[in-house]
C-alpha cells in the first residue's frame, strides 16, 4: 500500500504520478482518478488557495488512510495545490488504486467529498475587474460528504 500526500504550489504531472502509485500494486486492476481544474466563468481570473500547514497534511493523510481501509485500496495519491492558480490550471489530483473498478471509483469520490469538507483549505476568487472575494462553503458539499458517514468519518 502506497499513500502519497502532497500540498504544493507547483504543478503536478499525472504521467509522473501514475508509475509511483503503481509500485507495489501487482494485484491492482484499475485506477480511479479525479483531476480538478480551476473553473472559469463570471469574470473569474484566478483563485488563491490558502491552507493550514501541518493540519492540512495530517487531515489528508487520514482521509487517504480511511479510503484505503474502507475500499481495500493498494495505493492512494492525493495532491492539492495552494497559492495563486489561474483559470484552467490543475488544482487537485486524486488517484485510487484498487483490485476492481467499483472500489477505485467509489474511493475517488469518497476522497473528493471529504477533501471538500474536512481539509483546511480556503479559496479566494480574483475577478477580471480586480475584485476579490472569499468563496463560501457549499451546503451541497456537506450533503455529498454525509452520504459516506455510515461508520464514522475521517477526522
Amino acid at each position: 500500500m502506497t499513500i502519497r500526500v502532497s500540498v504544493q504550489t507547483t504543478i503536478f504531472s499525472m504521467d509522473a504520478e501514475l508509475p509511483r502509485l503503481m509500485q507495489g500494486g501487482q494485484e491492482a486492476g484499475g485506477v480511479g482518478a479525479f483531476l480538478g481544474v480551476v473553473r472559469g466563468g463570471a469574470g473569474l481570473r484566478a483563485l488563491t488557495l490558502e491552507h493550514y500547514p501541518g493540519m492540512t497534511e495530517s487531515m489528508i493523510g487520514r482521509i487517504a488512510a480511511e479510503a484505503q481501509t474502507r475500499f481495500g485500496l493498494s495505493g492512494c495519491t492525493i495532491i492539492h495545490r495552494v497559492g495563486r492558480l489561474t483559470v484552467g490550471e490543475p488544482i487537485v489530483l486524486v488517484l485510487c488504486l484498487a483490485a476492481h473498478r467499483a472500489a477505485a471509483l467509489d474511493a475517488t469520490a469518497f476522497v473528493m467529498d471529504w477533501l471538500k469538507t474536512r481539509a483546511p483549505f480556503w479559496k479566494r476568487e480574483e475577478f477580471e475587474d480586480g475584485r476579490t472575494a472569499w468563496v463560501e462553503a457549499r451546503e451541497a458539499d456537506d450533503i455529498a460528504a454525509s452520504r459516506w458517514a455510515r461508520d464514522g468519518r475521517p477526522g
Partner: peptide, 10 residues
Amino acid sequence: IAFFPPVTGG
C-alpha cells in the same frame, strides 16, 4: 487554537 471560516478546498 485556530479560527477560520468553513473550509472550501477540493
